[in-house]
């Protein structure tokens, strides 16, 4: 799956962009800035998905993740007042001990992960000894097999088709369960975020709650 040429170039661009955006997400003072950086990070990752030939997932990521979840985040950020934070009166990071300890362990953890990746990849290579040339040649062949698009400048991949057929056939049970999960999430979030007035009008006040 070696990327080459422009793919490699765009891989590095979007990869670094994702990391950079992620870093800024956790370091931004303003929560809205944080959200926007996260959006950019997510879009970068969507691009990486496309580079990984998972076009459908990229689309889903942008539509659902960015278009739904991040919008929701922005709504909630607006709901809770962060004026003080913007003015710089509040500290954005935790106390020093917590931050220090976290960074140390995170560094240790990333060291461990990187080492694991390297070791694992060497093992994988030992397992799948196919040369990159043969692999690349096969991929080219497959890519050539795809139907060209309407404009003729690219080919229409079969990723969506594959995901769909797999999702509705082999993964249909998790699919249905996921839909129930979403239903529960809807109900739960509606219930959690009601105001007292809304609860009272629905006659759904907590019996232990003393009305003010």
């Amino acid at each position: 799956m070696t990327l080459s040429g422009y793919e490699a170039l765009f891989f590095w661009i979007f990869g670094l962009a994702a990391i950079f955006a992620g870093l800024l997400t956790v370091m931004a003072r303003n929560a809205v800035h944080s959200a926007l950086f996260l959006i950019s990070s997510l879009i970068s990752v969507a691009a990486l998905f496309i580079l990984a030939r998972a076009e459908f997932i990229a689309g889903v990521q942008i539509l659902v993740y960015v278009g739904g979840v991040m919008v929701l985040f922005l709504f909630v950020i607006m709901l809770v007042n962060v004026g003080a934070e913007e003015r710089g009166a509040e500290e954005i990071f935790n106390n020093q001990r917590q931050v220090t300890a976290s960074l140390i362990f995170c560094l240790l953890l990333v060291g461990g992960m990187l080492y694991a990746i390297n070791t694992g990849y060497r093992g994988l290579q030992a397992r799948y000894p196919a040369t990159p040339d043969a692999v690349a040649a096969q991929e080219i062949l497959r890519d050539e097999a795809h139907a060209p698009s309407a404009t003729g400048s690219s080919r229409i991949t079969k990723d969506t088709e594959r995901v769909g057929s797999s999702l509705y056939r082999y993964a249909s049970l998790p699919f249905e369960i996921a839909s129930i999960l979403l239903l529960v999430a809807i109900i739960g979030s509606v219930m959690l975020a009601r105001t007292l007035k809304q609860e009272a009008s629905a006659d759904d006040v907590d019996p232990d709650f003393e009305s003010p």
């Binding site: 956790v26 931004a28 944080s34 509040e90 976290s102 990333v110 992960m113 990187l114």
Partner: peptide
Amino acid sequence: NPDLSKFLVIGALLFIIGVAGVLTRRNIIV
């Protein structure tokens, strides 16, 4: 020629950045 391992590295780094963010930030939305 970035390979699988590069993808994983990027994923690991994003993961760690996310963990650091969870542990260090005070704002609950962040």
